[in-house]
């Protein structure tokens, strides 16, 4: 695809361009893959439901540590009653979607890349071609759609666990008044700005990017074990960069 002598910039641009074209291929194949709806459901199970444990655990700890840190800092200003508010806003707007997407890239993205890469390496994709089954519609699109559907749901679950964790530390351990904690939160957090534009929209965008990168890397990997290993690494690296860069862009548009 690219010559070895090309420098990093040209190689990256080539990858980005190829990735963009691949997105068009996938989108064009979405109608054809409707008959593989069952496969999409199965993939939502694999990339979504199987990531629940890690997402819920991490959400809980992130919420707890935020509660602890904010309580410590806010107590300087005598503002510990705002702990719940700041925990909720920080999680909804940034940590929820971003950390969930990073976890998702590490947990589900890599497995999708490795799976497709190995299917390529063991001729399974060619075998599908030969059985007159379009591997884009049967393999790539369901995994892509599953990621796009699963990530917002995971993000929301992460946020719920985070708020719960913040409540656990703030109210149960550090003794902030329960009513204060909730009423300050409900008074300040806005459905549209913090949940729709924060968690849902960002997670949706990250879902598209992470799934696309994972499927693309798997699909274009050289069919060797070394190729699969590199592709998996590239999925994590490219996803992480893309998530954080896109987060900045989205935030600057939404704020």
């Amino acid at each position: 695809m690219t010559a070895k002598g090309d420098n990093v910039v040209i190689r990256s641009l080539t990858q980005i361009g190829a990735c963009g074209l691949f997105l068009l291929t996938i989108l064009a194949a979405v109608p054809r893959s409707l008959r593989h709806g069952r496969e999409t459901v199965r993939q939502i199970w694999f990339v979504g439901a199987m990531s629940l444990t890690i997402v819920m655990t991490c959400g809980l700890f992130v919420g707890m540590v935020l509660g602890l840190q904010l309580y410590d800092v806010l107590s300087i200003f005598g503002g510990t009653s705002a702990t719940g508010t700041v925990v909720a806003i920080a999680i909804y707007r940034e940590l929820g979607p971003v950390v969930t997407a990073l976890l998702f890239a590490g947990r589900a993205g890599t497995s999708v890349t490795a799976e497709i890469g190995l299917m390529r390496a063991t001729d399974q994709l060619d075998a599908m071609e030969m059985m007159a089954v379009d591997p884009i519609a049967y393999v790539a699109v369901p995994r892509f759609l599953a990621g796009v559907v699963a990530l917002p749901l995971l993000g929301v679950v992460f946020c719920a666990m985070g708020v719960f964790g913040g409540h656990l530390v703030g109210v149960t351990w550090l003794g902030i008044d329960n009513g204060t904690f909730w009423s300050n939160m409900t008074a300040t957090v806005d459905v549209h700005k913090d949940i729709v534009n924060g968690v849902l929209l960002k997670s949706f965008a990250f879902g598209i990017v992470v799934s696309l990168i994972a499927v693309f890397q798997g699909y274009t990997t050289p069919p060797t074990s070394e190729g699969v290993a590199y592709a998996t690494t590239r999925t994590v690296v490219a996803s992480s960069i893309a998530i954080l860069a896109l987060d900045f862009v989205l935030t600057s548009f939404l704020i």
Binding site: A88, Y92, V156, A160, V163, T186, T188, I195
Partner: peptide, 9 residues
């Protein structure tokens, strides 16, 4: 839960 319990809704 998030929308109804933690926001101004």
């Amino acid at each position: 839960y998030l929308a109804t319990q933690t926001t101004s809704v």
